[in-house]
Nucleic acid binder design. Structure first.
Lengths: 331, 331
DNA sequence: ACACTTATACTTATTTTGAGCATATGGGGG
DNA sequence: CCCCCATATGCTCAAAATAAGTATAAGTGT
């Protein structure tokens, strides 16, 4: 339990701070990505160095470079996970310094969501097409992924490994009774990665890909630089979970909003459709919002009342968030 | 959005892997701490270096040194958080290399819980006395913490800051309608830290302590090395949350157990008492366990049936875990 | 046989959920 | 102006989940 580095080895690493900057705009979930330079290069997450001599905390460092580089001032920030696998970085494999990234999610309001130079807002489901259940079960699941996952299962070395693979797939993709669990974004991405079904797979050559160029991006989503899609999967899963017991959704909403807008934002992140009447009942019962007295007549039908977040709810409820069907057995 | 280090500064940091190794033994939640050497020194979390040249992944590195140093083989391992605040490490303030720790929780079964040399199992609630509600609201809350927190609130510079402090305290400690939220372990510890109510407060001298030596450890818990208690608070909060939707509790149970033992283990971690009949009904309804056919007559009364974890539950339920009263308004 | 202890089964009122129907209130076209 | 259309909002109702008991079972020790 000592901390002395083994003599003769270099223990130093370089820390990067990677940011998943997310919002919901026009009912679409969006994430900020840095456009690739080269022709076949992949977009990447905005990222900045951690400065051990200047930044008192990592979160401070993150806010600093996000502000410097994008001009965006982010509100809600949460640390996600620290990514340090060897194969995430080809340079380290080649003998360079080991690169470690601390991933963060940052949420930003629609109105503030201008487009910084060199980067673009991407629809989240361009990266994870199988995660969008707002219009029912995505076709890609049955038509593409399920059969390919089945082959991957069958290719396992022995019966035991096969069972293990099948079990993982059942749980992650809800092929069994459990049904689809929206929070398991990372498990799904990791399975697809291991099965060679996403374009990132081949970084370290350990796993052979089963992609062919034609269907690739349309079906299995836009590949990103290094392991950035894994970081995004972590972020989406975390947000989906958190939305249920913390009022994070309001971090992406404008100050005033209609209940339908709120519902659409929740649906955009969770990827699941919600029952309108029940949604408003739950939101009201939970005390999450209060009417502002104003109305919005942008929608065409009867004008909707405008609401705003009621911060006091956190003092009244132990776990204030958007209540949602828990065990939806949608297969 | 480039990653090039600023020239002239040293960007390298040293990564440690800190492990919260936890179990539940004889209905008591336990955590492994390394005994302090000096007389007034504080216990610390077991910790090992991350070896960028040897460890393919950080988790692998963690398992490696835990095995090497303690002889324990841990099962469930989950990354918690990466701690990098400047003031966590006095050496860095003095100009040494910046130290960053990646915290992990590892769970281990009771039976495997021998005592490695140089370390000891500590009851979790020796460190967080206010977190143990198994026998009702802990006395320390009203008798010690509440008044001291009140003074801290009153000492705020202006009315706005005062309101902010009160709001935080209300939420964290459930002084308002929301009641006690068992998951907010970290929020509570951080508030106590800022209020100078735990002995660790003074590391960087920014905040004055309001501890006096006599009541210190009995009331506000055993202080640990550096920010290790913060890491533990993170771990406890995370486990308490996770227990509800993932079958993690079985990672600390023996292979066979009675339903009451299971209940006691859950209570030990969540810190809340549960209704016995409902607990067993929920556990059964959730399909978490299956009878082994054997019975245990260690208890004195009617022998209890022995159960074991039913792994298939993860295929049947989207979020299998121990159902618990959600909004318990226990003030 | 009896007291005592713990385990387990069953009952009941209440709350929460899921789903749908009904009504309200605006705009626009005739 | 009136009717149609679209969306918003209010309300009902059955089913399921929950919280809190009461009752009964099955061992041990005297």
């Amino acid at each position: 339990m000592n901390k002395k580095p083994k003599s003769g080895t270099n223990q130093a690493v370089v820390l990067d701070l990677d940011a998943v900057i997310a919002t919901v705009d026009a009912e679409k979930p969006q994430v900020l990505l840095v456009s690739a330079d080269g022709s076949d290069a992949r977009p990447s997450l905005p990222s900045g160095p951690f400065d051990p001599e200047g930044d008192r905390t990592m979160e401070e460092g993150l806010r600093r470079w996000v502000e410097e580089q994008t001009g965006l001032t982010v509100g809600f920030v949460e640390q996600l996970y620290t990514f340090g696998d060897l194969f995430r970085d080809p340079d380290a494999l080649a003998g360079g310094p080991r690169s470690i990234s601390v991933g963060y999610v940052a949420l930003i309001r629609q109105s503030a969501a201008k487009r910084p130079a060199g980067s673009d807002w991407f629809d989240w489901y361009r990266l994870f097409p199988w995660e969008d259940w707002r219009n029912g079960r995505p076709a890609v699941l049955n038509e593409v992924l399920k059969p390919k996952i089945s082959s991957w299962i069958d290719e396992a070395d022995n019966a035991k490994a096969k069972r293990a693979r099948r079990g993982r797939a059942d749980v992650a993709f809800g092929f069994s009774d459990a049904g689809w669990d929206a929070d398991r974004v990372l498990e799904r991405y990791e399975l697809l990665y291991e099965a060679g079904l996403v374009a990132e797979t081949v970084i370290d050559g350990r796993i052979k890909t089963r992609q062919n160029q034609s269907d690739a991006h349309a079906w299995t989503g836009l590949p990103l630089h290094q392991d950035h899609r894994r970081i995004l999967a972590t972020a989406l899963g975390r947000l989906r979970g958190k939305i249920r017991y913390r009022p994070v959704i309001f971090e992406v909403m404008p100050i005033e909003f209609t209940l339908l807008q709120l519902q659409r934002a929740v649906e955009a992140l969770t990827g699941a459709p919600l029952h309108k009447q029940n949604f408003r009942r739950l939101v009201a019962a939970e005390g999450l919002v209060e009417p502002t007295g104003r109305v919005s007549s942008e929608t065409g039908g009867r004008p909707a009342e405008l609401f705003s977040f009621r911060p006091d709810v956190v003092r009244e409820r132990p776990a204030p968030g958007v209540r949602m069907p828990r065990g939806r057995r949608t297969k």
